[in-house]
């Protein structure tokens, strides 16, 4: 029993950590790019977006995982969409109530969390096949990985933008930053 517990803990930890590095949604799986580029004009926006996406990811993963045995296979995708959209609506309303400034800054990208491929991807690839607890940790890890990745992009853009290179705060700067970050990671992987 003790051994099994330990194994479980290790397993959970692995599910948690894979989202941060090995399967980072932005840099490795290249999913959910729209917010990664659009809201990374400042670190605060990026963090806000990261928290919102993590919230939806954790809850949708757990709910979908708990329903995985009762959902008919044929209509699973529409069901996922409904679950995800409900949580996005909750986030939208919460944000409008408690962080109206952030909600205004993120604008159209809050409702667009619905179509963020990470969330749908994790629901389909992971939560519909694994237990509630592992799905929860998977969601947490992926959310954290996403937050870290977009904060990284935001930090680079904001620092360079503050240095006077205004183009980094405009759309071309976002695309450029992400392109070179990915290239840099490829380079590091090759050298390993």
């Amino acid at each position: 029993m003790v051994i099994k517990n330990n194994k479980n803990k290790e397993g959970l930890l692995r599910e948690f950590s894979k989202g941060i590095f090995r399967q980072n949604p932005i840099f490795v799986s290249v999913l959910g790019l729209c917010p990664a580029l659009a809201v990374t004009t400042s670190l605060e926006n990026a963090l806000g977006m990261g928290v919102a996406v993590s919230f939806v990811l954790v809850f949708s993963n757990s709910i979908i995982s708990s329903m995985r045995n009762i959902l008919p296979n044929k209509i699973r995708i529409p069901c996922f969409i409904v679950v995800i959209a409900s949580f996005v609506t909750i986030v939208e309303l919460l944000m409008a109530a408690f962080a109206p400034l952030l909600a205004k800054q993120l604008g159209i990208f809050v409702p667009l969390i619905v179509v963020n491929c990470i969330i749908m991807g994790r629901a389909e690839a992971f939560a519909s096949r694994n237990s509630v607890l592992t799905s929860l940790f998977d969601g947490l890890g992926m959310g954290l990985g996403f937050t870290l990745a977009i904060s990284c992009v935001a930090l680079i853009r904001q620092v360079l933008g503050r240095c006077g290179i205004l183009v980094m705060l405009l759309p071309p700067g976002a695309l450029l930053t992400l392109g070179f970050l990915m290239g840099g990671l490829n380079l590091m992987k090759k050298e390993k």
């Binding site: 006077g164 290179i165 205004l166 183009v167 980094m168 405009l170 071309p172």
Partner: peptide, 8 residues
């Protein structure tokens, strides 16, 4: 173009 958008 980079300079024009960076240092208008």
């Amino acid at each position: 173009a980079f300079l024009l958008l960076s240092f208008p």
